[in-house]
Design a protein around this nucleic acid. Structure first.
Length: 343
DNA sequence: AAGATATTCAACCGCCGGGAC
DNA sequence: TGTCCCGGCGGTTGAATATCT
């Protein structure tokens, strides 16, 4: 039987709206309201589908809409809400005055996703990439972990190269000297020698290669000698053996290295202007992330892995109440509806 | 200057839930 | 109870614009 289309496709205009059409629609709605979208184009003298009219009105013509750039606070709100509800754009938009779901969705897809990725955070799960790899590693047998390490390095390499080439880096890997099993090998390029503290400066290809080499060495060493790494991280020991755990620890250390680049004085988002971005402080303080903000170690928290996995699969696990967020960083009033578990 | 490539964002599409009958 | 219709949602597309080579 099939459903009757909302309008005759042959007789409706499509594509960009003209100012005249906008005027017709706006003036009609201001007089008659938005009760029946199917009748609105007919009555307003528009050769448009009712659905198209509704979209044009809700996404563009509505007088209460805010046009223009998203503020830093709005971006933070989007990121935090996305970490809780996932791609529920209408829910997220409802918390931002004057923004539509389409606005939020577009901004997420074009800007925020890249911004998070550039910070080493998976935009889907809101966890550090290394954190995710570490989680996977704990479930794999040793031979598979080696392959995973290779694949992970391939991904991380691109991010590291981006950071190293786009930003001035004045970062010292001081913590490495204090991590047994993570000694920096003697470098052949800048900063080489016997010192474990190495300064990286933008523009040196050798340094980039050195950094990648160090990460690679650290990871492979972690896989071969898991006991050589510190045990003060809350990694969950699994029945799959110590090698996976060692790799997980190595990923943890890797996160610390990456975080050093991201959140430091010349971190991502500052563009060298010296203005402190709130992103580094509170971007990743939601329920799913322990790697950003004040805890740069990227360690797994005490939550059960099933809980984490549930969220990674679509953000369906929502804790009731404001304890989803750190108590000192709640930026909006979440309605009960929003905080209820989403089925 | 011109072509190629990347980015942005308005608009469209199909699906779904809920209300009316 | 089942069907129809409407409005809303999220994913995707593609034209316009910006940036790069």
């Amino acid at each position: 039987m099939g459903r009757i289309p909302c309008c005759e496709k042959d007789n409706v205009k499509r594509g960009q709206w003209t100012p005249e059409e906008d005027n017709k629609l706006s003036s009609y709605i201001s007089q008659h309201g938005t009760r029946n979208w199917r009748l609105i184009p007919k009555n307003a003298g528009l050769q448009r589908c009712g659905k198209s009219c509704r979209l044009r009105w809700t996404n563009y013509l509505r007088p209460d809409l805010k046009h223009g750039e998203f503020s830093e606070a709005e971006e933070q709100t989007i990121v935090k809400l996305h970490s809780v509800v996932g791609n529920r754009w209408s829910l997220i938009a409802a918390q931002l005055a004057g923004r539509t779901d389409n606005d939020v969705k577009n901004h997420w897809n074009t800007k925020l996703k890249k911004k998070l990725s550039g910070m080493g955070i998976d935009p889907v799960t809101h966890k550090p990439f290394s954190h995710l790899v570490a989680e996977i590693a704990t479930t794999l047998a040793p031979p598979q972990v080696a392959h995973l390490a290779e694949a992970a390095l391939g991904c991380f390499k691109d991010e590291m190269l981006h950071l190293l080439t786009k930003r001035r880096i004045d970062f010292q890997l001081q913590h490495q000297s204090s991590v047994p099993g993570f000694e920096v090998p003697p470098l052949t390029g800048t900063g080489g020698g016997t010192s474990a503290t190495t300064t990286f400066v933008k523009g040196s290809t050798n340094d980039k290669d050195d950094t990648i080499q160090k990460i690679k060495l650290g990871l492979s060493r972690a896989m071969q000698e898991p006991d050589a790494l510190p045990t003060n991280k809350p990694w969950t020991t699994t029945s799959t053996g110590e090698t996976s755990e060692g790799f997980a620890r190595a990923c943890n250390e890797f996160t610390a290295v990456v975080s050093g680049f991201q959140y430091g004085p010349s971190s991502y988002g500052n563009d060298g202007e010296g203005e402190a971005s709130p992103w580094g402080q509170s971007m990743c303080t939601g329920s799913t992330c322990t790697g950003g903000g004040g805890d740069q170690q990227g360690g797994l928290n005490e939550r059960g892995q099933d809980e984490d996995r549930e969220e990674a699969e679509g953000g369906k696990s929502v804790e009731k109440g404001s304890n989803v967020f750190n108590s000192d960083c709640v930026l909006w009033d979440l309605s009960d509806d929003l905080m209820n578990p989403i089925v």
